[in-house]
Nucleic acid binder design. Structure first.
Lengths: 231, 231
DNA sequence: GCCGCTGTTTAAGCGTGTCTAAAAATCAAC
DNA sequence: GTTGATTTTTAGACACGCTTAAACAGCGGC
């Protein structure tokens, strides 16, 4: 019926497929090299078999390069699709926070549902309505309509800094309610100036200067705090 | 594990179940008496077997009273659920129109997706953000958070008016792009004053006065235009 | 009262996305 | 290199929501 468009048109992704693409995108960023199906399963809170299933499906559809037992990497097409999902997610988070006054620890779950409405027009109108925000409420960069993601702050995990380094908390890589609530009680707020006082090699914990007081942060925390290094 | 809440808690509805509840609600309003599965199938653009399937499922779950071959009516619980879906739908339509500048013929399709995000907090925040709107872009009343729907305008289809009656177009019951675009080209706009000049018994068409000019409207149109009668 | 038309329901099957349990491949240790 | 623990994949099953095709109920005409 539609021989030309049929060859070009990509069958729309299901919500689940989009979730997995987003997951692969995030894990690919934080790791280097291919993503293992077990990591995918852990991230998605499902079983390894489900992860394998979906990775194979996405591979058949051309979104993922996959070799059994050796992990998956996003294809160009897969990366493009994943970035669009991330864009929608972060724009909705920004909307929920700025316009509907949700706290930054509340927006993630709702955005996970809103992100699957795949209307380019809607996304772009939302972007304009929010006045083209650069970062979401967690400080993560919002990809542009063309899929470009650039972050002049070059954030790195706090865990990679050395004693004496000074920086600014610009983002968090874990958006779970538990983690964000912990940050608030500890007064670790986006924009805070932070200085590394001492490292504990034993358990990877870190003593940092935060305004007038010193706090001890576990490795689990320092891995999830993203810092713009000042010097 | 949770003996008490298990007895009370309603398993969440799927998007599809919500769509059917909304459909049943709308059809129950426009018809009188039980809704036939064929009407459901027609409205949902699916097959009769699918409609039967879903009506039976909703009946088992207690949302619908159903007698085979005799149609379905919403239970109290079903009406309540349907009204909430309608509330979300109309709030999102209002958001899309007022804030994102979508035309009234564009909002329906997007709202059909947004309406399934069933977070009472989100819905109420959106309501507040829009300053508690009473009507959606098609002039239909937006149910309150408690599920109350009251419309002091008492709109009736234009097709029920008599020669000499005068009224105001306050809503449309068909939200399809085709119909709404037709209305715009004919200058039939919400708020317009309208007077019935002549009825054509033959085909049910109607000659009406619209500002300085007279227009002829087919029965299909007069059934879908909702009028607040002035006298 | 029977016939046939229309409307409705059942039966069977398909695709998606999930699960558990079992089999297979990989990798590190010796 | 073979072995054993670990990771990964396959196989089989299930719920949901849809389809087509076939059986069935209700009702008017005669």
């Amino acid at each position: 019926m539609e021989p030309v468009s049929a060859a070009i048109a990509q069958k729309a992704l299901t919500a689940s497929e989009e979730d997995y693409l987003k997951c692969l995108y995030v894990l690919e960023q934080s790791q280097n090299g291919p993503v293992h199906t077990n990591d995918v399963a852990a991230y998605m809170h499902t079983k390894a078999s489900s992860a394998t299933d979906m990775v194979q499906r996405l591979s058949k559809k051309g979104y993922v390069h996959y070799r059994a037992y050796h992990g998956a990497t996003l294809s160009e097409q897969g990366t493009e699709a994943a970035v669009q999902v991330v864009r929608r997610h972060r724009l909705w988070e920004t909307f929920l926070h700025r316009k509907l006054r949700f706290r930054w620890d509340e927006v993630h779950a709702l955005a996970d549902q809103l992100e699957h409405i795949a209307s380019p027009v809607l996304t772009d109108r939302l972007d304009a309505f929010l006045d083209y925000p650069k970062y979401d409420p967690h400080g993560e960069p919002i990809p542009s309509a063309t899929g470009a993601v650039n972050d002049p702050r070059n954030p790195v995990p706090l865990s990679t800094l050395q004693v004496g380094n000074i920086g600014r908390i610009v983002a968090v890589s874990d958006h779970s309610q538990d983690f964000l609530k912990y940050l608030e009680t500890t007064n670790l707020i986006l924009g805070s100036r932070i200085e590394v006082n001492r490292l504990q090699a034993f358990d990877g914990s870190m003593h940092v200067q935060l305004a007038v007081r010193e706090v001890v942060l576990s490795e689990k925390v320092t891995e999830r705090l993203l810092i713009e290094v000042l010097h």
